[in-house]
Write a protein that binds this DNA or RNA. Structure first.
Lengths: 200, 200
DNA sequence: ATATTATCTTGACACTGTCAAGATTTGGCC
DNA sequence: GGCCAAATCTTGACAGTGTCAAGATAATAT
C-alpha cells in the first residue's frame, strides 16, 4: 500500500522506509538524500516536498527507530507484568537486541539529530515516552523492594546509561577482545544489570 | 616550532591541530578536509601527502584526543595513589570533564573511526592503553576490598560503560530536564559510580 | 470546469572527497 | 658543491552531495 500509488503516493513514509533500508545495507556514511530518493523511485529533489532538509529526514528516521524500539521495549515489559525485576531484565534485553539488529539505525538515533533535536517534536515525544517507560519499571521495582527508594528518574538514567554505554562501546569496537571474546554483548549487559540490582 | 618552517613544516601535526580547532568551533559536521587544509594555510589537497583519506585524518585526531584523555586520566590517578577508591572517583571525574570540555573531539573519538578502527594501530594502542589504565585501578580497588573479586576487565567494562553511557546520553540531549535540571553531569556520573561501588 | 495548491522534475550552484599531473623543495650521494 | 631521487605541495579536474529556483503535473476545492 505504499508503492502502488500512481505518480506519487505517501512518499514521505516511503522515503523513511528507504532510508532505514539504506542504513541497514550501507551504514550511516551511505545514507544520502539522493540515494534515498533514487530508492524510492523519485527525482533527487522530490524529498524537499516532505522534508525541509536532510537533518529533518534523519530526524524522521530516528523517530521511526524510536517507535520500533518502544514497541519492543513495551512488549518485553508487558510480557513480565508479574515480576518487576524480570521486566527490567527483559526490557534491557530487548533494548540490547534492537541495537544489535539495527545497529546503524541505533547509531543515528543517538548521534546525528544533535542539538537540533528539540526542533523535532515527534522525536522528542517518543524519546521521552520511551524514557518514561523505563521510569515506570524502576518505580515498580521500587514498590517491590527490588530497587531502593530515591528519584526514579535519576535511577533510570543510571541504569539506562549503563546499558546504553556498554552497547555503544561494543558497537564502536572499544571493548577489548579479552572481554568480548568470552562474553556476548547480551551477557555483558546482563552481568552489569545484575551487579546494579544487587546494590539496591 | 610547528609554524615557522619555510615552505612546509610538520604539516601533519598542523593538520591534526587545525582539525581539533575546527571540531571545537564548528562541530563534527563542520570538519572538512578542505577547511582543515585552509586553516593550516595550505592547498586543498596538500593533506594527501600525509593522510591517504579523510578517515585517516579523523583517526589521527581521535588518536590525539585519546592521548590527551589518557594524560588527564593518568594524572588524576597518580594524584590519588594512596586510595584506590579515590583513584576511581578522580579518574571518572577527569573522563567526564574531558567529554564536557572537548565535546566534539569526544564524539568523534567514539563514533566515526568505526569498523576501520583496527586499521589505525596508533589509535588501537592508545585506546587499549587507556582501558588498561582503568583495569589497573579496578585491580587496585579489588586488592583494597573496594571492588569484589572477578575479572577486572569485565568489571572495568561495566564501570567504564556506565560512565560513558551517561555522558553520551547527556551530550545527545537524551537526559530529561527533570534530571539534568537538578543535577550536573558530574553529579549524575558521581551518583552512578557511588551506587556501583556500593554493590561491591 | 477552473483555479489554487501540493507534489514532483529538471537544471543549476557551491561544496565536498579524491585523484592525476606538474612544480618545488629536500636530502642523500658522487 | 652539484645532481638525482624522493617527499611535499599546487593546480586542475571529476563525480557526488545538499540545496534552491523554475517549471510541469496532478489533486483538491470552489
Amino acid at each position: 500500500m505504499t508503492e502502488k500509488t500512481y505518480h506519487h503516493g505517501d512518499l514521505k513514509n516511503a522515503l523513511i522506509q528507504a532510508g532505514i533500508e539504506i542504513l541497514a545495507k550501507e551504514g550511516v556514511a551511505g545514507l544520502t538524500l539522493r540515494k534515498v530518493a533514487r530508492r524510492a523511485g523519485v527525482s533527487h529533489s522530490a524529498p524537499y516536498a516532505h522534508f525541509p532538509d536532510k537533518q529533518s529526514l534523519i530526524a524522521a528516521i530516528s523517530t521511526e527507530g524510536f517507535n520500533q524500539l518502544y514497541t519492543l521495549l513495551d512488549a518485553a515489559i508487558l510480557a513480565n507484568t508479574a515480576d518487576p525485576r524480570q521486566q527490567l531484565i527483559a526490557g534491557t534485553r530487548a533494548y540490547t537486541q534492537f541495537a544489535i539488529d539495527h545497529t546503524d539505525t541505533f547509531k543515528i538515533m543517538f548521534s546525528s539529530a544533535l542539538e537540533k533535536e528539540k526542533e523535532y517534536p515527534a522525536f522528542v515525544e517518543i524519546s521521552q515516552k520511551t524514557f518514561e517507560r523505563v521510569v515506570d519499571v524502576v518505580r515498580a521495582c521500587q514498590s517491590a523492594g527490588v530497587i531502593r527508594p530515591g528519584s526514579p528518574e535519576l535511577l533510570a538514567v543510571t541504569i539506562w546509561g549503563q546499558v546504553h554505554g556498554i552497547i555503544s562501546l561494543a558497537l564502536e569496537g572499544q571493548i577489548p577482545h579479552l572481554v568480548l571474546g568470552e562474553h556476548s554483548i547480551q551477557e555483558i549487559v546482563s552481568f552489569a544489570l545484575g551487579q546494579m540490582l544487587q546494590s539496591q
